[in-house]
Design a protein around this nucleic acid. Sequence first.
DNA 1: GCATTTGTTCCGATTTATGGAACTCATAAT
DNA 2: ATTATGAGTTCCATAAATCGGAACAAATGC
Lengths: 252, 252
Amino acid sequence: MTVLQNASDVLRLFGSGCSDLTVTEVTTRLGIPKANASRLLKAMRDAGMLETIGDTRRHRPGRMMLDLASAFRKSLGVIGQAGEVVAAVTERFGHTGYVSLREGREVTAVADFPGTNDLRVVSNIGRRLTAHGSATGRTLLARMSDAEVQAVYAGRPELDGLLPRLDAIRASGFAYSSQESTPGVDAIAIAVGDPTTEEAVSLCIVYPHAVVGEDDRDEMLAALASGATRIARDLGDAKFVAPRIPEKGLFA
Amino acid sequence: MTVLQNASDVLRLFGSGCSDLTVTEVTTRLGIPKANASRLLKAMRDAGMLETIGDTRRHRPGRMMLDLASAFRKSLGVIGQAGEVVAAVTERFGHTGYVSLREGREVTAVADFPGTNDLRVVSNIGRRLTAHGSATGRTLLARMSDAEVQAVYAGRPELDGLLPRLDAIRASGFAYSSQESTPGVDAIAIAVGDPTTEEAVSLCIVYPHAVVGEDDRDEMLAALASGATRIARDLGDAKFVAPRIPEKGLFA
DNA sequence: GCATTTGTTCCGATTTATGGAACTCATAAT
DNA sequence: ATTATGAGTTCCATAAATCGGAACAAATGC
């Protein structure tokens, strides 16, 4: 067994909820001689993979690991990061999720995460929705200025009443729609973008109107919002508005 | 040179802004034979420390590293995390920073970070301020309900006009004070808490009123806010309100 | 198609890791 | 005060990994 594998096993112990380790914990949890564990932790400390907590014998991951996490996220790109967030929300609540891009007056899903609930909205990757007529699309339009939106919709009837709705999204940080694109289906969407590549995507969760109460809905919004906020912070998205979870009854 | 040290050197390359690496980049940047680099990256991949990006030859940190970053933060606790954020802001802008706790109607600094500017507010750890009369204190009070605040200030004159000020903080997510506790000194404060331990701390930057323009002030607020937001997200702080950077002129 | 760049594999010599036991150090119990 | 107890480190011969150079293979560019 190579040292690297052992070191990796030690690091993996941190994954399962434990935030610090001692030599003995490592020997018992990995089943290796304590002489090895002792030397291994020392070597990992010297290499900066671990650091001791204060002057105790407890170890935690080294500071270097913070940079790694952000390098990992950076290399994913916005779409990838958005996908990770939506996947996590889908996993947790069982409802279908999308990541979508806007092209002109339309939006297309570029990644989809089928829900697991018995009653769920079937995923439909590649289906094109109108940007003005979907929560996802409006979050992406809301990232543009009114002038830009007007340019996209020059002389078109869809513009009617659109700008105030976008203002509302700019204020709240998210969009919600109930039975708009599909009967019986509600959607929550939040947009986030990468200022360096100019890519903006929308994170969206869709669910059957009938089976989701206000509390679940707010929880999903909160989950989606916290993921999107992290992405926006990591990428330095200045246009992002941190969604504010509304009080009960003020939703929509 | 041990493998662990080499592996660590490779990981460290990610720290300096680069989000992915190839074998040749590693050989040149670390100055090691490419045979070694090739085997090293393979071993690190097998150990889960790295993963390849798609089916290209580029490598990025493995997903495991995400867990490590959060284990690191968790082991710091709120006070430690707040300290890291304040230290970073202090470092960047040169102004003095504090982390404070509230006890009853007073707040005390538990960590301080002396500024580096020629004209700066001298740090004063252990100095007690009134909670109602300092930006720091009010951010902490704003985390409580009106009823709880009233209980703390039962029958006391300080309660006059306090609740509306707290409401303003709850709405904006931060507190600002100009020449309040100390003449010539302004302060920006944001509170964050750990729901599991019930600990709440306030992150605060203090600076001479005369030398900081609106732009710098907004930048400091943004820096403090993004750090506090990350902490709140990591810990699941439901009471946290993500600060919204106000438009010019609407500040305070 | 050929040249070039990039990555992998092979080899013996050398370095490093391994695991059992002996040892130190601090803390808790008698 | 003395002795157990447990955690952590160090010692040693053996076993296994790494090293660097060069030959080899596989992409990429012209």
